[in-house]
Each structure stands twice: as structure tokens, then as C-alpha cells.
Design a binder for these strands. Structure first.
Length: 330
DNA sequence: GGGGTAAATACTTGCCT
DNA sequence: AGGCAAGTATTTACCCC
């Protein structure tokens, strides 16, 4: 749904109308639209992701369309037995059923009073299990909020799903009691947007959320500490392939930049610095060494960091790197 | 184009109650 | 627990070579 590539949309249409015949098994061979890297299908999570840059290209590749065909509306009514599509954003993933309120059997006949009280008890328990505890009810409300805010901020689908997962984890870890659902769901969305590599300033979230910035901040801090919410690619090297391919630098340069980062990590130069900035600087430094000479501007454009950051960073990197080189050569 | 600096801002951490 | 404040990194805007 979030996929903007028209060819994919066409494919999925064909999928549902031609049933299974045109099902495309192999994502292998396709390439990432951002970095041209190899993409793989993770069947556990049902996501198509890029091996290089980790971009989630497509989630839920399952064909949600019916597996039967109907040619008349009567036939459609008769055959239809499906509910809404499954989604992370419904508290029970949209899969729950309810026990009907009518005291009737499958044929519409009234049931005996004995059965009736049995049904009543079943309904009670059904209700209890379905909204098992405060948690599930929280989820329901929170996911609503997440969706609303994500739309307002125009965040893509993968981010919303991630936010859902994050929030669900928070609930499972019992982090909710005493905290507002609003604050937490905003924090989850904020965290998700960062994890997915498209951070927005906290203030934007504050604008669309019903809680103030401070609350969100606090909730976020809590979140990230309590469930070790590693803002995922903590490893700067992860960004390299992506940058390298969009900048079309030599493999040599990419290899060197990887070295530089490794050395930098050993020397603990990189604590507290943004991984993106480091990756960009390393790449810039590498092209400097291989005489490819990219300008700081081009690198900064691709990496979305300022030239200043690259300047500051690459000098430090180069310093430790050349030092290490000299020691190694001796 | 590379390089530098100052002020503003975003974000984290630590300290205090 | 929550609140505040200080500290660090990054960006923006401007300058010079």
C-alpha cells in the first residue's frame, strides 16, 4: 500500500486476479531502490528488506485477497468468509472473533435456558480473554493514536508498524502503569521513525500529539533505557554500502573507509557521535586517500549531515587512522 | 572548494528532591 | 518519580583562503 512503485502495484493486482499462478517467490535478484543492494525476504517477519542498508521495502507480502473467485454478487456473498486484513495496528492483529449476543443456534432457533446461561458465561470469559488485561486495551487505544499521528506527519507504513512493535514490547515489559498512553505511543512512534532512519525533530511529534514535548521526551528516555531500545544501526559501517553506491565510489575507497571506521572504533573516537556522520566522514576521508576527491558537499547531501560535521569528523578519523597505519607497517 | 568559527538548537545525562 | 540544568554534538550562517 505504501509502495509507490507502480510496477509493484500492478503485480499485486495480477496476483489477486490470477490467483496463485503469478505468485512471485523470488525477491532474490531484485535490488533495493535506494542503494541497489541485494534484497531478501524475511519469512519470519514477512518483510522484504535490503541487505545493505536495511531499508524495509515491503511488509506483509501475503496476498490478502481471497483465494476463490466469484462471478456474481450472490456467489461472492456465499463464498466470502474473511474478515479484515491482519495488521499490527489492531490490538489483536484483527484476528479476534466474538460470541454473538443472540441466544440462537446456528439455524436461528432459540436455545434452551440451560444453554443460554452457558452462553452467557462463555461470553464473559470470551470478553475476559479478548481484552485479556489492561494491556490489550491499552494497545487498542495506543495503536489508534499511532496511526493518527503517523498520518498527520506523513510517515510511511514501515514506521507505523515498527511503532506498533515497539509499543507492544513496552506493554509486555510492563512499562505502562503510571504513564499516559498518549505519551508512550508518541514516544514509540518517535523511536520508530529514528529506527527506520527517518528521524523528525521531537517538536513535530509534539505538534500532533496531545501531550507536551516534555512528556514525550521522558517517555522516550524511559522506553529506550528499559527495553534497551538500541537505535538500531549503531554501527556506522552499516551506512557505508548505501552511501558508497549512491556516490559511485570505488570499491577500494569503500574498503578503506571500512578500515577507517574499524580503527576509529578501536580507539573509541566515536562515542557519542552520530553514526551517520562518522560513516560519511570515513567515506570522505577514504576518497581523499584514493584521490577520488569527492566534495564535502556531495557527501553531505547523500548522508544528510552537514559539511561541518564531516569536516570535524574526518580530521579526527584521519588522525587515528594514519597513526595506526604507521604502527602496523613497522 | 576547503576550512574555520559563533550562535542556535537538539538530545543526553546527571544531579537533586 | 519527576523535574531541572548542565553538557555535548550538530546545524546554520557567515567568513576567509
Amino acid at each position: 500500500m505504501h509502495d509507490t512503485d507502480p510496477t509493484h502495484i500492478k503485480q499485486s493486482r495480477e496476483n489477486s486476479s490470477n490467483r496463485r499462478e503469478s505468485e512471485r517467490e523470488s525477491v532474490a535478484g531484485d535490488t533495493c531502490r535506494e542503494c541497489q543492494g541485494q534484497v531478501t525476504h524475511d519469512s519470519d517477519r514477512d518483510e522484504v528488506t535490503c541487505e545493505n542498508c536495511g531499508l524495509v521495502l515491503k511488509t506483509s507480502t501475503v496476498d490478502h485477497g481471497p483465494e476463490w473467485r466469484a462471478f456474481t454478487s450472490d456467489e461472492r456473498d456465499e463464498k466470502s468468509r474473511v474478515g479484515s486484513p491482519m495488521t499490527q495496528l489492531l490490538h489483536d492483529k484483527g484476528l479476534s472473533t466474538t460470541i454473538g449476543w443472540q441466544d440462537q443456534d446456528a439455524y436461528g432457533q432459540p436455545v434452551s435456558s440451560r444453554k443460554r446461561s452457558q452462553l452467557q458465561r462463555l461470553r464473559e470469559w470470551d470478553e475476559r480473554f479478548r481484552t485479556k488485561d489492561a494491556h490489550e486495551r491499552n494497545l487498542k487505544q495506543a495503536f489508534g493514536e499511532i496511526s493518527r499521528m503517523a498520518s498527520a506527519l506523513d510517515l510511511p507504513e514501515p514506521v507505523r508498524e515498527t511503532a506498533g512493535v515497539v509499543y507492544r514490547r513496552a506493554v509486555e515489559e510492563n512499562l505502562l502503569p503510571g504513564r499516559s498512553i498518549e505519551g508512550m505511543s508518541t514516544a514509540a512512534l518517535y523511536a520508530a521513525s529514528r529506527q527506520q532512519g527517518m528521524p523528525r525533530p521531537l517538536s513535530e511529534f509534539a505538534n500532533v500529539s496531545r501531550v507536551e514535548k516534555l512528556r514525550i521526551q521522558r517517555a522516550y528516555r524511559y522506553l529506550s533505557r528499559e527495553i534497551g531500545l538500541e537505535i538500531e544501526p549503531e554501527d556506522p559501517a552499516q551506512y557505508l554500502p548505501q552511501f558508497a553506491s549512491s556516490l559511485e565510489v570505488s570499491e577500494e575507497a569503500e574498503r578503506i573507509s571500512r578500515d577507517i571506521l574499524a580503527v576509529a572504533t578501536d580507539n573509541a573516537v566515536h562515542s557519542g557521535k552520530s553514526p551517520v556522520g562518522l560513516a560519511a566522514a570515513a567515506l570522505y576521508a577514504a576518497t581523499y586517500l584514493t584521490n577520488e576527491h569527492l566534495t564535502q558537499e556531495t557527501v553531505s547531501n547523500v548522508a544528510h549531515v552537514s559539511e561541518v560535521t564531516i569536516r570535524n569528523r574526518y580530521q579526527e578519523l584521519l588522525e587515528v587512522y594514519t597513526e595506526q597505519e604507521n604502527i602496523g607497517d613497522r
